[in-house]
């Protein structure tokens, strides 16, 4: 067998050719994935403040972060953000998809305009909203002023700021769930719906018994992708509260630990912690998605 491989004239097998094409990807993946992970795991057991030499302190960093209320608060807030944003994106997205699921003139223009929030950067999105919600001269507050509504503390109160940021995020991502669901609605088998109508099923019933179950895989895909990006909420905070006023998310907390306090040990411990959580969540969601796809 070995001889065959080394004979120069013998053409490569399909399998070898396949590996050859993947090799660069594997190489970059190995370096860029293994290096930080291994490094983070090792450093998470040391005390290191970006200068000098790291000292081994065992599991102290993990003990610290697991007993830190700021960490749990930021984690809880991230969880709340994930749930609220996804629920609103799904419900409003479904309503919008049902609205758009009919033939009307100018569909292309409407689609194009609705896609705009999706493609602008989250940082620009947060800056736009802090401008138009500005307390003194933001356009939203000017318009609300016409109706004698004043001084809504969009970003300046602990009870409101985090919801404002969630609202911004929903604004940006609502078109995504809308158009994924719309794609699903357009692909629904018509005969089944006609049959349901003939059977005298109400449209409410048809929606829950037929539409939602058929769209389940798409709903799962939306949830999976949105969870994965929402648990890493960072950019929208930068242009608004910078993690202040009870808005700090988990990633902002990690950033603050690593790049404001320069605590590499605790920062990497948080990174490892975050990796474990991410893997757990993505595993659960992924197997759910596969189940939903198989049932179809």
């Amino acid at each position: 067998m070995k001889n065959k491989k080394t004979t120069p004239k013998k053409p490569m097998s399909d399998k070898q050719f396949g590996w050859l094409l993947i090799a660069p990807l594997c190489f970059v993946l190995a370096v860029f994935m293994l290096y930080p992970t291994v490094y983070a795991v090792v450093m998470s057991f040391t005390k290191y403040l970006m200068k000098g030499t790291p000292t081994w302190i065992g599991a102290d960093n993990y003990r610290y972060i697991l007993h830190n209320s700021e960490m749990w608060n930021s984690l809880g807030r991230t969880g709340l953000t994930v749930i609220i944003c996804i629920v609103f994106e799904l419900v409003l997205g479904m309503l919008l998809a049902l609205l758009l699921n009919r033939d009307f003139r100018g569909q292309g223009i409407v689609r194009g305009l609705c896609f705009m929030p999706l493609l602008i950067s989250p940082l620009a999105m947060s800056l736009i909203w802090s401008y138009i919600l500005n307390n003194q001269y933001g356009i939203v507050n000017i318009i609300l002023g016409w109706f004698n509504i004043y001084n809504i503390p969009w970003f300046s109160s602990v009870s409101m700021a985090k919801y404002t940021i969630m609202g911004m995020t929903i604004w940006q991502w609502l078109p995504f769930s809308t158009f994924v669901l719309l794609a699903g609605l357009k692909g629904l088998p018509k005969d089944q719906f006609e049959a349901a109508q003939v059977d005298g099923s109400s449209s409410w019933n048809t929606f829950w018994r037929l539409t939602v179950p058929t769209l389940k895989p798409l709903i799962m895909i939306i949830v999976l992708l949105r969870v994965m990006s929402l648990i890493r909420t960072y950019d929208p905070l930068y242009g608004t509260t910078r993690g202040g006023l009870g808005t700090e998310t988990f990633d902002w907390y990690v950033y603050r630990m690593g790049f404001v306090k320069y605590d590499v040990g605790r920062g990497t411990a948080l990174g490892v912690f975050s990796l474990v959580i991410t893997l757990l969540i993505s595993n659960v969601l992924y197997s759910q998605l596969m189940k939903a796809l198989k049932k179809r």
Partner: peptide, 28 residues
């Protein structure tokens, strides 16, 4: 050719789920 079955493909996409913060400090 899918030389490795689908395992490698899913490993590839799972790097997208890797939290950026875990890469940030080591690479910095």
């Amino acid at each position: 050719y899918s030389p490795s079955g689908n395992t490698l493909l899913f490993t590839t996409i799972s790097t997208r789920m890797f939290p950026g913060v875990i890469a940030a400090i080591p690479f910095f």
